[in-house]
Design a protein around this nucleic acid. Structure first.
Length: 904
RNA sequence: GGGCGAUUAGCUCAGUUGGUUAGAGCGUCUGGUUUACACCCAGAAGGUCAGUGGUUCGAAUCCACUAUCGCCCACCA
């Protein structure tokens, strides 16, 4: 049959067109059908800051496989895409760009509105880049429902959740120690911090009766409290006493308290506390009701009010000068130059963190306000319960432990950020006219300015300004994760009670990298359970997803994180798609990786899977070349099965369907992929297609096998399979086809055992034949050239071999074209002739029977051992009856195989 | 300091509840290559499953300890 198919599959020639076809067909957009099971994944929204990386590519590949599988299974499958505004990340990128363009201080110079417009422009551009890249991966997501975390309806959802929590007093404004980044002029969440190890000087000072050690003398101006361990013999008697102490700016009074938090072995065992600039000290100060005075201002300088000598001085410089001064006073005891400590930096921007006490907005994680299974529970308790009671399953399981551990240590979540890009807090403060004026006059205002103004009065919730009085809106925005926490249900229309929300929520799988388990996954559980429970849904309906599937990080060949700064090892998914095709990249990201474990990726691996894609192409191409056009129209029926080979491949196929189904249900994508790969290449191509060459090919089975395999492959490699489907099926897209169903009528157990045996024997024959051929070629060589070794003739050997073989089959050697059927005949002979000669059924049977008797005696041995140990008493055992039966059956099968082999 | 994980062929990794002779891809070597495919085919070599001990008829798999590597969390006066 004439088919115009190219010899090799060229991905870039077809992929875009195929994607367009899918999108137009409407296959991505499911219609709610209550007769069908819903299957939904909310796509983790990539940051709208630019390029897709391999982490995204993995996410897209894994989720697309799940979605396509369920779609073909007949579920109402929705994959909801979107992008995230990534507050701090985005703003800092744009600010840097502006700075490069000559605007020194973008916030001050542009002001809120203009800066936000700049960011908007940037985001629009990178959003379209991302959309395009997601399409390149072949992601079959529903673009009609695409969302963005800053959309208006998302803003409504965010404000609604805020309102719920505000009214429940779960959200509160409190003076707390926060991580302040003086560079970015914003607070930073605990988990957005990074620690960098650094060598620093560690100073020891005489401080009244004790010696204290510190790496940060510049914070110690107003330290008035010495803390020691109550059981420390050295200092015990000092506790409770007060001392006059000579210190940086003259004399101060300090008292000594005892607390068990002090580590006696560390430093001198005595410390002073600086409540305003250290978390531990702050907690201590609260415990003992001590004042917290700010020493360092929000710009990272010593406050003018604190010291006339050092006020206004940057930290580094002040430290030097203070040490100098204390040294002059004779208070410096010693300096440890080799002190190694961690400094904390903002993980975006790498600015050094200065702990500060500020008024910020928090979510209380311990307040018991949620109605949960008949009790009032706190956020913490609900978070724990959803996973502990198996409402939510985390894959791999070990992350459940990590999750619990994280919750145990969870503190109130600071949700306000001093940046402008994001959802502005729906909070208003009542102020005096003067305060309002000062506030309006300042262009780059953010909450630390409120701090300076001392605004601390009545607050009002709402997006509109209250009608009477002077009010100013909190300039801060919400933590990005506060809005992305609503992703699963706000994207379905919440707070409106939409059909979508009712039908699709809870979502089925949340698939993401394990690195954002806490950032995002936990917070989604928090937001979803709280908000929907508040709406009166029952507990089961409030969880955001039933399964959390965590993929690993992609690393380079050496196991290092890929980063753009190292282009040698950094692989750009788009380059790979261009070079090898999206299908190949998808496979290389999915096969050989297991959930939760990192994976190394390098180009050769992708190239390997490209070879496989080509194999799929050529297998189908071969199939098409061996059939007539009419064959494609014929429906496959049981009566069309003819040969052993047919039965064997059909049996293999059914087993594969069963296995793949099982694997995909249990989210074992890699296993499923490997099995299909192995089937197509190892069994379908290398064995089945080989034997079906020739005159007695059976198109019905051939087409059936090919079609089924393409279906199984489609979730993994959608492009190439869809393209091939166009040749096999004139109407209808593969994406919308039904998944193959396991059919036990197509399993031929006994026959397939025979085939297994033949298969095995032929493998052996092939290798022996290979050896024989070498021998034969040498003999022919010797015959023709009179036994003389002629290396220069070596290359002619192939020709000689061919001639010799054709001659032996009495085919003319005149150089005329050998007909296809004759070639096939040669192959048949080669495979089946030796089979008859070489299978020694007697011998094979003896070997197996030897094995059987081994098993028999093994079972007997087991029985007597069990009897000896008293497990079987007196009565004859029937413990191994089923094993014995299996053995009997196996022996019978062996006999029938021997019979069948005689008749080949 | 607390927790989690990893260690399997030269390299990258699978190995699902313990069960025949521990698998795959790449690489290496040998040979073939005829009308689907050199992005190919048939083979081969290569493993003390990190180490030690234990449980078991049987351990890569379960338990304990040790070693090395990695990650997370907390702290760092």
């Amino acid at each position: 049959m004439e088919f115009q198919i190219e010899k090799a599959y060229e991905a870039k020639k077809y992929e875009d067109k195929i994607y367009e076809k899918w999108e137009k067909s409407g296959a991505f957009s499911p219609k709610i059908d209550k007769k069908k099971k819903p299957f939904i994944i909310s796509m983790p929204p990539p940051n709208a800051t630019g390029q897709l990386h391999l982490g995204h590519a993995t996410m897209l590949a894994v989720e697309d496989i799940m979605i396509r599988y369920h779609r073909m299974k007949g579920d109402c499958s929705l994959w909801l895409p979107g992008t995230d505004h990534a507050a701090i990340a985005t703003q800092s990128v744009v600010e840097k760009q502006l700075q490069k363009g000559g605007i020194k201080n973008p916030r001050k110079d542009l002001g809120r509105e203009k800066l936000i417009n700049e960011i908007k422009k940037f985001v629009l551009e990178s959003q379209s880049t991302i959309r395009n890249q997601v399409r390149k991966m072949g992601a079959s997501c529903d673009w009609k429902r695409e969302k963005y975390t800053l959309d208006e309806d998302m803003n409504l959802a965010v404000n609604t959740l805020f309102k719920y929590m505000y009214e429940d007093k779960l959200i509160y404004r409190g003076g707390r120690i926060v991580n302040w980044d003086p560079n970015m002029q914003t607070t930073v969440a605990d988990d957005e911090m990074e620690y960098i190890e650094e060598k620093a000087k560690f100073y020891y000072f005489q401080y009244g009766p004790v010696v204290i050690g510190t790496a940060r003398p510049e914070t110690k101006f107003l330290d008035k409290v010495i803390v020691v361990h109550p059981k420390d013999k050295r200092y015990k008697k000092l506790i409770g006493k007060e001392f006059d102490i000579e210190w940086i700016d003259g004399k101060i009074k300090a008292k000594v308290i005892g607390d068990e938090c002090v580590d006696m072995k560390l430093g001198t065992g005595a410390m002073t506390i600086t409540p305003a600039h250290s978390l531990v000290d702050f907690e201590l100060a609260r415990k003992y009701k001590l004042g917290t005075e700010q020493i360092i201002d929000f710009d990272g300088k010593i406050r003018v009010e604190v010291s006339k000598d050092f006020g206004g001085m940057p930290i580094e410089k002040a430290r030097e000068k203070i040490v100098e001064k204390l040294d002059k006073k004779g208070l410096l005891v010693k300096i440890d130059e080799e002190y190694i400590h961690n400094i904390s930096v903002n993980y975006r921007g790498k600015g050094i963190i200065e702990p500060q006490v500020m008024k910020q907005w928090f979510i209380d994680v311990n307040k018991k306000v949620i109605d949960w299974k008949g009790k009032k529970c706190s956020i913490k308790q609900v978070l724990q319960d959803t996973v502990r009671s198996k409402m939510i399953e985390i894959i791999p399981k070990r992350f459940e432990k990590i999750y619990f551990h994280w919750i145990d240590n969870l503190k109130d979540w600071c949700i306000s950020r001093q940046i402008w890009w994001g959802h502005q807090l729906p909070i208003w403060y009542k102020v005096s006219p003067e305060q309002e004026k000062a506030f309006k006059a300042k262009k780059d205002v953010s909450s630390f300015f409120l701090e300076i103004l001392g605004i601390d009065g009545e607050t009002h919730y709402g997006t509109e300004k209250p009608k009477s009085g002077n009010w100013i809106r909190d300039p801060d925005t919400l933590d990005t994760w506060f809005s992305s926490a609503l992703w699963t249900f706000a994207t379905l229309g919440w707070p409106e009670k939409t059909k979508e929300l009712e039908y699709f929520h809870p979502t089925n799988v949340l698939e993401t990298g394990y690195d954002i388990l806490f950032f995002w996954v936990a917070r989604m559980i928090l937001a979803s359970t709280y908000a929907l429970r508040k709406d009166g849904l029952n507990e089961e309906s409030t969880i955001p997803f039933k399964t959390v599937y965590l993929h690993g990080l992609i690393r380079d060949r050496h196991g290092k994180k890929m980063s753009k700064s190292n282009p040698e090892t950094c692989i750009d998914p788009l380059d790979m798609i261009k070079k090898y095709g999206a299908d190949a990249l998808r496979l290389s990201l999915v096969i050989g990786s297991s959930p939760g474990n990192d994976m190394r990726l390098y180009e050769e691996k992708i190239a390997g899977y490209r070879n496989f894609i080509n194999k799929i192409w050529n297998a189908t191409r071969f199939g098409l070349m061996n059939i007539e056009k009419d064959d494609l129209k014929k429906e496959f029926e049981g009566g069309m099965i003819k040969t052993f080979a047919d039965k064997w491949i059909l049996t293999k196929l059914q087993n594969l369907i069963k296995e793949v189904d099982k694997d995909l249900e249990k989210q074992r994508l890699s296993d499923a992929g490997t099995k299909i790969y192995e089937f197509l290449w190892g069994q379908c191509c290398d064995w089945y297609l080989e034997t079906s060459k020739g005159d007695d090919k059976n198109p019905a089975v051939l087409i059936f096998v090919l079609k089924s395999t393409l279906k199984l492959l489609h979730p993994f490699v959608p492009f190439v399979t869809e393209k091939l489907w166009e040749y096999l099926e004139k109407d209808g897209d593969l994406i919308a086809e039904d998944w193959p169903i396991y059919d036990k009528n197509l399993v031929f157990k006994e026959d397939s055992k025979t085939m297994e045996l033949i298969h095995e024997v032929i493998s052996k024959i092939r290798s022996i034949r290979a050896e024989l051929k070498v021998e034969a070629s040498k003999k022919i060589h010797a015959t023709i050239y009179g036994g003389k070794y002629a290396p220069h003739l070596e290359e002619k050997r192939d020709t000689i071999m061919r001639m010799a073989r054709l001659e032996s089959l009495d085919i003319s050697k005149k150089g005329e074209k050998v007909p296809q059927s004759k070639v096939a005949f040669v192959q048949k002979i080669e495979i089946y002739l030796p089979l008859k000669d070489m299978i020694d059924t007697q011998k094979e049977r003896k070997r197996l029977e030897g094995e059987f008797s081994n098993i028999e005696s093994f079972i007997k041995g087991l029985e007597s051992k069990l009897a000896n140990k008293g497990f079987i008493k007196n009565a004859p055992s029937n413990v191994f009856d089923s094993e014995k039966q299996k053995l009997k059956k196996a022996q019978e099968t062996l006999k029938s195989i021997s019979e069948q082999l005689k008749n080949i």
